[in-house]
């Protein structure tokens, strides 16, 4: 029986992803011990600091050796390390169904699923908890984060079941995610981010302010960037079939590209303000390469 994840992850992808480690940039809250810094101070071996004793503190934490030297009571504090709670938010709106001529037959959604699968695999492998939310105009399926290896199956199944259709409203979806991600963690948004750039940026900021680290993989097709159409074309909306425009692409190209750039820069500005990583990804690229490049960049930035 073919494992469902093999549909999304090729052996090459797996081999490339296996060696990667994704660290949270900030502190996170986890249930078990892990490789990520926790905001809890625990009985770890990683010494953090001394602080003066105040009544109520447990006496076993007093650093008696230091008391002997200084004749003052200090509490010895250690840093706790915990696992990461990561929620993958996968866009399954209609616009993700687009597949251009240069994307090796992949729709943006399929590309997003592969990226999400790779991330899930990577995170589960480093004992972090991974959840999944698929959404279009609202959250369609939510799988809470777990760190068991067999949880991967459930994630992949949910990804397999995800069919892109319907309209999207990213800002509402992101607000919905606030309810699901109450503890500190990581939210990875995989979407084309089409919509009102300002509203999206605002929602991302809200998420960020809710102690979530946010990474946005913006998946675009090459066609959407350089608009290569020549002949008169009827553009039919993937989200709303009734919405269609007959245009001469040659006439529109310049303005379209200008619009695209303006939109992109608006989104980038919004993300930068909230210290959110926005990674524009083309479907013509290899998702494992994109991932490894990003993680390498992230590590060097750390």
């Amino acid at each position: 029986m073919k494992l469902p994840f093999l549909r999304w992850l090729s052996p090459q992808d797996l081999s490339r992803v296996t060696g990667l480690q994704l660290y949270a940039k900030g502190v996170v809250e986890g249930l078990s011990g892990g490789m990520h810094r926790s905001h809890h101070i625990g009985a770890s071996v990683q010494f953090k600091e001394h602080r003066p004793y105040v009544p109520g503190d447990e006496t076993r934490n007093i650093d008696w050796k230091l008391y002997g030297k200084t004749d003052r009571l200090y509490i010895r504090q250690y840093e706790d390390e915990t696992n990461l709670r990561c929620t993958l938010a996968l866009d399954q709106s209609g616009s993700m169904r687009y597949s251009g001529s240069r994307s090796q037959g992949l729709t943006k959604h399929e590309f997003g699923v592969r990226l999400a699968a790779s991330l899930a695999y990577l995170l589960i492998n480093q004992q972090d908890a991974v959840g999944l939310a698929t959404f279009d105009s609202t959250i369609r399926n939510y799988i809470p984060p777990r760190s068991r290896p067999n949880h991967l199956q459930a994630l992949f199944q949910a990804m397999t079941d995800s069919v892109p259709s319907s309209e999207t409203d990213l800002s509402i979806v992101l607000r919905g995610l606030l309810h699901n991600c109450k503890r500190r963690g990581l939210v990875i948004l995989i979407s084309d981010c089409f919509g009102d750039a300002e509203a999206i940026a605002k929602s991302l900021t809200l998420l960020r302010n809710n102690y979530q680290e946010v990474i946005v993989f913006q998946i675009l097709d090459d066609d959407e960037v350089d608009f290569p159409f020549q002949s008169r074309t009827m553009f039919r909306s993937l989200e709303l079939a009734s919405n269609q425009i007959l245009v001469d692409p040659i006439q529109l190209r310049k303005v379209y590209i200008e619009n695209m750039q303006r939109y992109q820069s608006e989104l980038e500005r919004g993300c930068a303000q909230s210290r959110i990583d926005l990674i524009p990804v083309r479907t013509s690229q290899s998702h494992s390469t994109v991932l490894s490049n990003y993680i390498a960049k992230r590590r060097s930035g750390k």
Binding site: Y98, L238, L246, L252, K254, V255, Y256, E258
Partner: peptide
């Protein structure tokens, strides 16, 4: 001019913005 290609398109909001802006000159 009479031959029209239909494309299912995601980024409709970008198209609708730019529709009539520069059409005349082009």
């Amino acid at each position: 001019r009479n031959r029209v290609v239909t494309v299912d398109w995601g980024a409709m909001h970008l198209l609708q913005f730019s529709r009539n802006v520069n059409a005349k000159r082009v």
